[in-house]
Nucleic acid binder design. Structure first.
Lengths: 345, 345
DNA sequence: CTGTTAGCGCGTTCAA
DNA sequence: TTGAACGCGCTAACAG
C-alpha cells in the first residue's frame, strides 16, 4: 500500500555498498564483480526496487522514447502505422508515445509542446487537416528533435518523409474506373493545403486527360472526408442531378459514407456506380465487397518511418541531411469488382 | 539546428535574476511582481526556452500523467473510451499515455512496468484476454499507484471498476432474439477467465431458462472473438448442420465475421438469422443495418473511469477504499430489425 | 517580492 | 573493482 520509494541509495545502505556501484550493477556494467552484481540484483528484487526513469533520463539526457502523432488512432490506416512503429521501436529498445490530434491544429501544437517538454528522442507525425501554419514543426526542428513525416507531410524544406505515390494512386484509381466503363467520375478530395490530396487530384486530372475525358470543376468536391462528408457529398450530386457513374474518393471513410447513402437508396455498387478509395481498411471490403482500393501499406510505412527516424536519432553516419521515401501502393480489386458495370459493356 | 539547451539558469544569467524567481515566474506564481514576470516570460520566449518536464516531475514527484492500457486502440470501443479519458484528463490538466497490449500478457506486463518506471500518477486498464495471472496488477497496487479497471476487469479484491451490467446485457440480447422469434440461439463467447464473458453467458442462460428454452452446450462457442473467429464459428455450425436462427455474439468483431460469412453464402439477416452483438461500433450498422447491438457507452465509460481515477489520485476525502460503478448499456435496434423474421410469425 | 540553499534519483567522472 | 563527489534541470523551504 505504501508508495514505492526504494532508491539505489536504500539498496546501497542495506548492503553497505556505495550507490554508484548499485547503479552500475543495475545497468549491467562490466565494471562490477559478478558476485557483487548478483547480490545487488537479488537485493533490489527483494526490496521491490523500481528504477525511476525520470531521474535516469534526466541524467542521461536521453529518453529512449519516440512520439508518434496521428489525426485519429481509430482510423485503421493510422493504427496499422502505429503497429509498425511499435514493432520496430520496441525491437530497438525504444518506447512509443501515441498521440492523436483529432484533426485539430491547436491540439497538434499542444502535443508537440508536450513531447518536446518530455524530451522525446524523435517524432513521427502525420499532420492534421487544419495544419497550415508550421511553426510548431519548425520549433521541433530548431530544438534538434529528429522528425519524420509519414503520409500527410509538411511543405517545408529539409524534411524527412515516408510517403506513397499519391499522384500515381490518383491516376490508377481514375484509370481503373475508366477502364471499368465509367465516363463521369466524381472525385471526393480533401483540403488542398495537404500535398497528398493535391497530388491525388492531379492524378485524377491526368488520367481523365489521357483518356480524352473532360475535367469538370463540379465533379470535384472538397471536404474533410469524414463519413458524414461522404454522405453529404453524394447526396448533393444526386439531388443536383449530376450525371455520374463513378466515384474516386481520396479516403475510405468518405467512400463508406457514399456507399451507405447509395445502398440505402437502392443504387447498386459497382453496377450503377463504381467506387475506388484510398485505404488499407479491411472493414470497407465487408461493407461492400465491390469497393476497389488504392492500398496504403500502413504497417510497412510505420516500420520504414521508424527505421528512418532511428537512424537520425542514432546519428548514424552515411545518412543524408534529409530524404523522402516513396512506398508502393497497389490498386486492389475486390471480389465482385469483376462484374463490370453492365450498361457500359 | 542545435539541441535546445536553454535552462532557467540561462535565463537567470541573461537577466541577472535568480533562477528560483525564473522558476516561479514560469509557473505563474503570484509571488513574482507582474513587471518581472513579464520580463522573464518575454526573455524565455526570445531564448526559445522549453521547460524540461523530466526535471520538473522528478523534483515534484508527480507527473500529471495517467496511463491507459487497452488491448487494441483500433477497436472502436477502446478508442472511444480513450476519447473520453483524454477529454476528462486534459480538462483536469493531466496528460495521457496510451498503450496497447495487443491481447498479450507479456506486453501488458511490460507496459505496466514502463508506466511505473515513468511514475505515472494513475492507471486505467482493460485487461488482455490472456491475463489470468495478476502479479503485475498487484505490483501496481503495492506501488501505491491508483488503479481503475474498465470493462475487462480483474478478479482481485479491493479494486475500482467501471463496468456495464454484462449479465443484463446478455439477458437482453438473448431476450430480444427470442422475442424476434428465434428458438435456436447460438452464443459466441470469449475466454471464461474474463468476468465479462462469464456474465454475458450467464445472462444468455437465464433468458433461455426464463423462456423455457433448453440450454445446449453445443450452442455456445468460445473463442477470442476476432473477425476470423466469427467466420470460423459460423462456418463450423453451418457445416455441422446445427439448426440455428439467431446469434448472440459477445462482441461486434466476431459478429461482423459472422455477417460476412453468412452474407457471402446468401443467408439473409435478420430474416434467416438474427444477430445481436455487444458493441458501440457504428461501422457495424453500415455492414448490416439489421445488426442489433448492446451498446457499450465507451466515451462515457472513459470519462467516468477517469473521474474516478482522478479522485483517487487527488486523494479527495469522502471516497471509499474501492468501488465499482455499473453503467447503463441499452439494447439498440437498428433500422431493419423491425422486419421480424418471417418464418416465425 | 526576491535570493539562498538544498535536494528529487540517478549516472558519470575521477580517484583509490 | 569500488567509492566519493558532482551535477542533470527544476522546485520548495527558508530567509531577507
Amino acid at each position: 500500500m505504501e508508495i514505492n520509494k526504494v532508491t539505489i541509495h536504500d539498496i546501497a545502505k542495506a548492503l553497505s555498498i556505495d550507490s554508484s556501484t548499485i547503479s552500475r550493477a543495475l545497468n549491467d556494467s562490466p565494471r562490477v564483480k559478478k558476485k557483487t552484481k548478483d547480490r545487488i540484483l537479488h537485493k533490489a528484487q527483494e526490496m521491490g526496487y523500481q528504477r525511476n526513469l525520470l531521474a535516469s533520463n534526466l541524467r542521461k539526457n536521453i529518453t529512449n522514447t519516440i512520439g508518434v502523432v496521428v489525426p485519429r488512432i481509430s482510423r485503421h490506416f493510422f493504427s496499422s502505422v502505429i503497429q509498425g512503429v511499435e514493432e520496430t521501436a520496441y525491437q530497438a529498445g525504444y518506447n512509443v508515445i501515441i498521440c492523436q490530434s483529432l484533426e485539430q491544429l491547436e491540439r497538434e501544437k499542444k502535443i508537440i509542446e508536450t513531447l518536446m517538454a518530455n524530451r522525446v528522442d524523435g517524432v513521427l507525425i502525420s499532420i492534421s487537416m487544419e495544419t497550415m501554419d508550421y511553426s510548431h514543426m519548425e520549433a521541433l526542428k530548431n530544438g534538434g528533435v529528429p522528425l519524420v513525416f509519414f503520409d500527410r507531410h509538411c511543405n517545408i524544406p529539409d524534411t524527412n518523409n515516408v510517403l506513397i505515390d499519391d499522384f500515381k494512386g490518383g491516376f490508377d484509381a481514375t484509370q481503373h474506373l475508366i477502364v471499368s466503363g465509367c465516363k463521369n467520375i466524381v472525385h471526393f478530395s480533401g483540403p488542398q493545403a495537404l500535398g497528398i490530396y493535391k497530388k491525388r487530384l492531379e492524378g485524377y486530372k491526368a488520367a481523365l486527360s489521357e483518356n480524352n475525358l473532360p475535367f469538370r470543376e463540379e465533379y470535384v468536391i472538397s471536404s474533410r472526408l469524414m463519413e458524414q462528408d461522404g454522405i453529404e457529398n453524394v447526396k448533393k450530386i444526386v439531388t443536383d442531378n449530376l450525371d455520374f457513374d463513378g466515384i474516386f474518393s481520396a479516403n475510405d471513410v468518405a467512400a463508406i459514407g457514399a456507399i451507405k447513402y447509395l445502398t440505402n437508396n437502392n443504387v447498386k455498387i459497382p453496377e450503377d456506380v463504381a467506387i475506388v478509395g484510398f485505404s488499407n481498411e479491411p472493414i470497407s471490403t465487408v461493407i461492400n465487397p465491390a469497393l476497389t482500393t488504392i492500398d496504403q501499406p500502413g504497417f510497412e510505412m510505420g516500420k520504414t518511418a521508424t527505421d528512418l527516424l532511428l537512424k537520425y536519432i542514432k546519428n548514424q553516419n552515411g545518412i543524408k541531411k534529409s530524404q523522402t521515401i516513396i512506398m508502393d501502393s497497389n490498386l486492389i480489386e475486390r471480389q465482385s469488382s469483376k462484374k463490370v458495370r453492365a450498361r457500359n459493356i
